[in-house]
Structures are given as structure tokens and as C-alpha cells.
Simulated assay, not measured.
Amino acid sequence: MSIAIELKGVSVKLGDTVVADGVNLSIAPGEFVCLLGPSGCGKSTLLNVIAGFVQAQGTVLAGGVPITGPGKERGVVFQSSEALFPWLTVRQNVEYAARIRGVSRSERTEKADKYLRMVGLSSAANRFPSELSGGMRQRAQIARVLANEPSVILMDEPFGALDAQTREVLQIELERIWRETGASVLFVTHDIGESILLADRVVTMTVGPKARIKSIAEVDLSRPRQLASSRAIELLRTLRDDIAVEVNKVLTAQGLVLGGRA
């Protein structure tokens, strides 16, 4: 099987702190992988390494080619909707990268229209980000990434700041978009239920510093998924227990010991 993203023996040092140490992970073309773990375990740092924003020791490959910096084949959706340019309309935000590359107006407009339709924002194309809800801004950010037609989409807790109802809607929409595009997705989240709903595999990490991959769980559930199924509940408990062990390590280091789950 070919590999979209591969990390081999990857270690990341920020200042004097070794954030992640000896990480090995591969993501197949078209695969949806969720990265799960306690705060401070290096999830976002690893995502930034793959994005090309942060340098690391070890081997980091995209499609078999070493990653030395950002590239249009790897799109990043950030947690904050403030990543949109507030002085540009939604359409102009989506067209921005193509305009910088010198793509003709007709071609970039056609592509922007395509992806605005895909995320359900055609009617908001001429609005500014400040005129949109949080969920609409995140959809606009996803459309901006899709307009570059990346083979890999990196998502750093993109729904973390949204209300529960909006988050649920966007989870469903993201799964649909993933299926339509065929891109590989690496999705950072703290939400165990979200990871079960979305992922082909859930990768959990140990607490940092020197965080490592703790476990990799196959999500062998048919789509669309329901968290009320017996298999989903079993998997949720397993992942919750994995994360609880790591959270308790943090609390113990801080002088607080819990008798049960975190």
C-alpha cells in the first residue's frame, strides 16, 4: 500500500523541551486518522511538523518526498476561524492562494464556486467573515483549503470552539466532504466521541514531554456511525481508559491523585 504521510523516528524539540520523541506513524491515501491525547502531549506540534511549519529530527515524508516546508499538497484547517482574512469576502478568501499563484480569474472563480457549493456557502460568497457564524467561518476555512485540492488535509481541533449542535452538523459535513475529495485527513481532537465518529484509526499519545504514540485503534464500524452502538461504547471505554492513565500522570506530577478515572 502506498503511503500519504510517514513519520519515522520523529522527535521534536521546542526550546529546551523535547515535545515528542521517537514517533512512528503512517497514513494511507484516503485514510481518516484522528490524533487523540491529553493537553500538552504534542498533537498540534506533530501536525505542524507535517504541515512544514515546525522542523523535526527523523524522517517526515509526504508521498515519499521529504517535507522541508509548507506545500499546497498539504492543507491546514486551524482551530480558530480568525485564520480567515477579515478584509476579504468569503469568495476572496477561498480564491486567495490561487490568486497569489497567478491563476486566471475565471479558473479561480470556477474553483471557488465549486468548493463553496461543497461546503454549503454559495449564498454567503460575498459576505465578510465578521458577518458569518462560527460554523460558517469554519466551513469557509475548509473551502479555502479544498480550493488548493490537497491530497492531505491537516485539521487542528477545527470544531473545538463551536457549540455542540454546530459541531455535530460539521462532523457530518466533514465526513461527506472527505468522501467526495478522497483526501487523507489527520484530525487533532480532545473529543473521544468525535474521533470514533470520524476516524478509520484513532491514534492516542502519551503525556509530554517526550510524548510517544501510546496506541492505535482501528474503528471497525460501518458509516454513518452511532455512538450508542455496543461496539462504539466498547471502543469509547477503551480510549477513555487509555487517556485517563495519561491524565492521571499529569495530575500525580502536580500532587493530585485521583482514585478513579480522570
Score class of each variant (00 low, 15 high):
Leu121Ala: 09
Met205Pro: 04
Arg261Pro: 05
Cys41Asp: 05
Thr238Cys: 02
Thr181Trp: 02
Ala62Pro: 01
Met205Gly: 00
Leu258Pro: 07
Thr166Lys: 10
Gly30Ala: 09
Arg74Ile: 01
Val185His: 08
Pro209Arg: 07
Ala112Asp: 03
Leu121Asn: 03
Val76Asp: 05
Glu149Pro: 04
Met136Asp: 10
Val54Trp: 07
Val76Ala: 06
Glu131Asn: 12
Arg212Phe: 06
Leu35His: 12
Ser81Asn: 12
Pro86Asp: 05
Met118Asn: 03
Arg179Phe: 00
Thr206Trp: 06
Leu198Thr: 01
Ile100Gln: 14
Leu7Trp: 14
Lys13Ala: 15
Lys13Ile: 15
Thr89Tyr: 02
Leu227Tyr: 01
Ile243Thr: 09
Leu162Ile: 08
Arg108Met: 13
Gly37Val: 04
Leu121Thr: 11
Ile142Phe: 01
Gly30Glu: 12
Ala124Lys: 13
Glu149Asp: 15
Val203Gly: 04
Ser104Asn: 01
Ala217Ile: 10
Gly69Asn: 00
Val54Lys: 09
Asn24Arg: 08
Ala98Pro: 05
Gln55Pro: 00
Ser26Thr: 15
Ser44Lys: 01
Leu47Glu: 06
Ser123Val: 04
Gln165Leu: 15
Arg261Tyr: 12
Ala112Thr: 12
Asn48Met: 12
Val188Asn: 06
Ser44Ile: 00
Leu221Asn: 03
Lys114Gly: 00
Gly37Pro: 08
Gly260Tyr: 09
